[in-house]
Design a binder for these strands. Sequence first.
DNA 1: AATTATAAAAAGTTTTAACACCTAATTACC
DNA 2: GGTAATTAGGTGTTAAAACTTTTTATAATT
Lengths: 152, 152
Amino acid sequence: MKIEEIIKTNSKMSNGTRTVINLSYTARNIEEFLSTPFKEYDLSVQQYNVLRILRGQKGNPANLSTVQERMVDRNSNTTRLIDKLIKKDLVERQVCPDNRRKIELFITQPGLDLLSELDPITEQNNAQILQNFTENEIETFNNLLDKLRQNE
Amino acid sequence: MKIEEIIKTNSKMSNGTRTVINLSYTARNIEEFLSTPFKEYDLSVQQYNVLRILRGQKGNPANLSTVQERMVDRNSNTTRLIDKLIKKDLVERQVCPDNRRKIELFITQPGLDLLSELDPITEQNNAQILQNFTENEIETFNNLLDKLRQNE
DNA sequence: AATTATAAAAAGTTTTAACACCTAATTACC
DNA sequence: GGTAATTAGGTGTTAAAACTTTTTATAATT
């Protein structure tokens, strides 16, 4: 369905408005679809992303600020988000010995185990979303998204 | 910048994951950019969208369910969202005489005035986001977004 | 060495969202 | 006409996001 039909607008929108609404609507749509499996694991998409960032460190610790930098949406509550992961034993936190303002974050073994359980589900869902896209379209789409971000 | 550079990932992602992250990140990015001017007017993007929906009725009342249907993100708290607009005198609510379960929502004159003030700002910002896109790219982008939503 | 500035993280507060449940009005059906 | 089912909207509670302020540690300055 075209976006105009979905939001049942009767006045015609400008190209800019239409595109922005389409982007926003589609992103929410996809995010909702993807978040469903996480609910069974009592994990938010955000928490899952933090776990993946920590795993990406391959054993090296990450500071809170590093995690924030890499988050898809960096909000200001990363401390509390990580508190929750710690409470579930998925993450460990220790004060950095070199600079006691910093903290060092590690993913635990249970955290890694959880990720290996979730990864295939996510991969499959991500793939499903793109199932009707050709390789070419995927490239085009990513390039257009990259280009869209250049204007602010 | 490519999305991989932005989130500084060191492990390579699948096409699906990369694209989903790119979409999500870009949408948030754009939404944040667009929401800035609204803050000065003490209005959220959601509230602005509801006002536009009511104006789109061109004098006819809208039910709550109609508004919900047309919202970009239909959440379950539309009642309370509209409460806030009423408190600011931007919207009026009355019980539908034909069916007292239904309510009728109208945008007020101050609501219309506020919209005419905000519209050019939004239009300009929406246009700015697309400034580097050709007409062709805009069409392609919208088509790809539409296609992306077909898979769930 | 004391003073100021900056940086990293945490905590406080207020809004907003999510989810389930509730209430009132209408419709359907016996 | 009385009872169940459905529909439209509202409430309550809890959790998460947004925004702001505070705390503590380090760096810079004088």
